[in-house]
């Protein structure tokens, strides 16, 4: 579904990502592991049109490079950025409603109810400004908001960042069930390899802008180098 080949991208003259190739199939959960500065965020931002990239990026056969972020959302890709990107001045409900911005159908209200049921804390805080919530709640809101666009592919940028271990676990459990129930493919970039490999079927390892290893999640979690670098045992 998402096909990336020989992708190069970065800010100004600095090329953070140097010739990446990977793919995500429909309905699949894929993880890209990498340390700080390895190019994870740049990769996602290039896919969602926030920064310019070179190479090949196609989604269901259509090239994404050169398209604006809002056009890419309309094609069915939702990006939950690093640091969550909740719109803090809007209420929880308004954030969700804005998530459905690209939709023209009449089921938006039902979907808001549905996601408030999946994430009960959002339902409790519907009319509060998103900025007043905790980090974990904002991460849930960011994911729910992304799902409001009914994406075929969900991009997640370090959802565990700044969250307590217990909250992180909850986020990943929700992701797993969302993938199962909606059938949306998930591409998650993470440093927290343990949880990410737990919910994914395949993974890639990114170092200084290049893929250095890939394989099924099982293979990767038993790989010596991955274990030392990302699992810490």
């Amino acid at each position: 579904m998402l096909w990336v080949e020989n992708l190069t991208g970065g800010y100004g003259p600095v090329q953070v990502v140097q010739g990446l190739s990977f793919e995500v199939a429909a309905g699949e959960v894929v993880v890209i592991l990498g340390a700080n500065g390895s190019g994870k965020t740049t990769t996602l931002r290039t896919i969602s049109g926030m920064i310019h990239g070179r190479g090949t990026v196609t989604f269901d056969g259509t090239s994404l490079l050169g398209k604006r972020p809002d056009q890419i959302v309309r094609m069915g890709i939702a990006h939950v950025p690093q640091g969550r990107g909740t719109i803090t001045d809007l209420t929880v409900e308004e954030n969700l409603r804005l998530g459905a911005y690209v939709r023209a159908d009449r089921e938006v209200e039902e979907d808001i109810e549905q996601w408030c049921a999946v994430f009960p804390r959002l339902g409790e805080r519907r009319d509060q400004p998103a900025g007043s919530m905790s980090g974990g709640e904002q991460q849930m809101l960011a994911i729910a908001r992304a799902l409001m666009s009914k994406p075929k592919l969900l991009l997640l940028d370090e959802p565990s960042l700044g969250l307590a271990p217990l909250v992180t676990r909850e986020v990943f459990e929700k992701l797993e069930s969302i993938n199962r129930e909606t059938g949306a493919a998930v591409l998650v970039v993470e440093q927290n390899a343990g949880l990410a490999l737990g919910i994914s079927s395949r993974g890639y390892v990114l170092e200084t802008g290049q893929i250095v290893a890939q394989g099924s999640s099982e293979e990767l979690s038993t790989d010596e180098a991955v274990r030392q670098a990302y699992l810490g045992y």
Partner: peptide, 18 residues
Amino acid sequence: LAMRGVASNAESASLVGV
């Protein structure tokens, strides 16, 4: 709503398709 979203956080607003 989109205008208020852009006013608060333009990048996030564009990521939901505004």
